[in-house]
Design a protein around this nucleic acid. Sequence first.
DNA 1: GAGCACTGC
Length: 724
Amino acid sequence: MNSLSEMPSMADPRQALKPNQHSSEDTIARRERMRKQRDSLPIASVRGRLVEEVKAHDVLIIVGETGSGKTTQLPQFLFDAGFCHDGRVIGITQPRRVAAVTVAKRVAEECNVQLGQRVGYSIRFDDSTSSSTRIKFMTDGLLLREALLDPYLSRYSVIIVDEAHERTVHTDVLLGLLKSVLNARSKSVGGCVNADSKKGNFGIVRKNESGTQSVGFLKQCQGMKFPPLKLVIMSASLDARIFSKYFGGARAVHIEGRQHPVDTLYTLHPQRDYLEATLVTIFQIHLEETPGDILVFLTGQEEIESVERAVKEQVYSLPESSQMIVTVPIFSSLPSEQQMQAFKPAPAGYRKVILATNIAETSVTIPGIKYVVDPGFVKARSYDPLKGMESLVIIPTSKAQALQRSGRAGREGPGKCFRLYPEREFEKLEDSTKPEIKRCNLSNIILQLKALGVDDIIGFDFLEKPSRAAIIKSLEQLFLLGALTDDCKLSDPIGRQMAQLPLDPIYSKALILASQFNCLEEMLITVAMLSVESIFYTPREKSEEAKTAMKCFTSPDGDHLTLINVYRAADELLEKRNRELIGKNETNFQRKTDKILRKWCKENFINSRSLRHAHDVHSQIRGHIEQMGLHVSSCGEDKLQFGRCLAASFFLNAALKQPEGAYRALASGQIVQIHPSSVLFKSKAECIIFNELVQTNQKYIRNVTRIDYLWLTELAPHYYAMQS
DNA sequence: GAGCACTGC
């Protein structure tokens, strides 16, 4: 097992393309240049006033546009102003891992300190911080996890929640928690609320809209060990009002950004076929506009591939002098090597057309974009609590999203954005995207809130409350898994152990059960593989080859054992190579094993990024499991034992074959199909369990294994005994 | 015989 853990992290494609900043530049000159850059940022001119605002108010909202420098500069201003003098830490949260890492590196460089000393970052699987770290960048999910161990967040003097307008479920829950922490840590009741509504010099302000102070679930700790906490929320303009209102009319200030102008153009009429309109627009830009790359926003892989084919076909109908155009796709499930193609400059004289999903909206920044084509649609996940089913549907973007997309054309110079709908349609769009907390399964966050001591979930002061039905459905699920007692309290030890594990609750429960079924080793691999993005990658043009490659891993029982076979095959391969390399005194040992694994993945149509990720999850969870004292043993060749454990764990997701070959999900009664990517797609198994139910064109279940129906009544009698 | 945006612990 150890062999795989020695693989080095795979280079992130977004970082691999950064130039080496230390190449031949003189240190002093570099520092001087950096100082000038910092001084020229819009935020530099309001430094003093900003520090005063933070000192004067416990909650401050900063509305900062792109390029204002708020993320890199504010933490340094506060550090210099003495917010860490007592050894406490300024914490800055980000929704994404890459952002936390890259910003931390930049700030460490600006402070001229080694990363991990005064300035560091902490994200899952990667912690650069030390006891001397005072400015700490992290993901918002990680800070939530920290709160389980330290509910008052006592090591922090300031917490800056960046990109709050993105409204990820972690940001929302974190803000709910912080409201209670502020209240508990404030010296006097009302101390965290700013009632001052005078107009500021460089900002504005909301009136105190709510005089009532919500008392959180944390006990007051007046005069105790913790000094008051400062909270800074950084957001894009459209959503500041809601944060201010939530924090009792907290003060909001505005900092201007630095963006080049983007000329936005609309169509005269609505387009019936937006893919056709996209194609026409791409060629129109190519033929009529000055040089510069084009970024096109599409909803998914299928659209991207079809537009790519169409561009390649139609380019030959152009005059030869105009044929210099290349397309590059980028979407999250694309292997990293291929993602990186989007960042490479086009050959001299060529125009590059990047066909992207909304990965290019915030997650990655591709240089050289001058034109944006925005058909105005996005594929969004929604969740139906009554059916317990997720669905993926194509819907119009929000205004905020459309603005974010057009902004991508103005990063390096003036640009143009072509919206493929009339201007009057823009006005009809929602202001911002529906917050994630209102469209996801809440089981995981409810379990975490329970572990934090929030007993009354329905009464919890959410920034925006999820539907009652969604809350009740998740409470019910947690109860059926044994995480909650009859009176809806966290059970001990099961619920407490489940909350400790950073996994979907149903997977946490599966691990606890597996220790009783003597197959924890197998279940650990299974939940790790189920927790990551798709392991198999099947490009359309090589689907036959991919199918053949997959055959050598296939288990007739189903996808779960198939995934275990893949994981173990990779493990064995690396162990074998390690034995060969050991004693040869090889340098670049890690790089070589990594290269071997990547080659193997490519040959077997496996996504090496996903496999690597599964391995990280595996070792992290194994650490937790061992700490809990659960016994990690293998069932060896006893597949029956593992199958029974799957039935006992995933009894809520069981389905029975119907006469027509479809399946009926027992919990909800829905008629579903096995997804074609499953090894059981053509099988005629009578009874199965599955791990995912998603509606796309049909209701598909994925990750499926056959079981014996009788196991359900035997192993989950509390659920099935009455029904049989 | 279909196809799944994006994050995160």
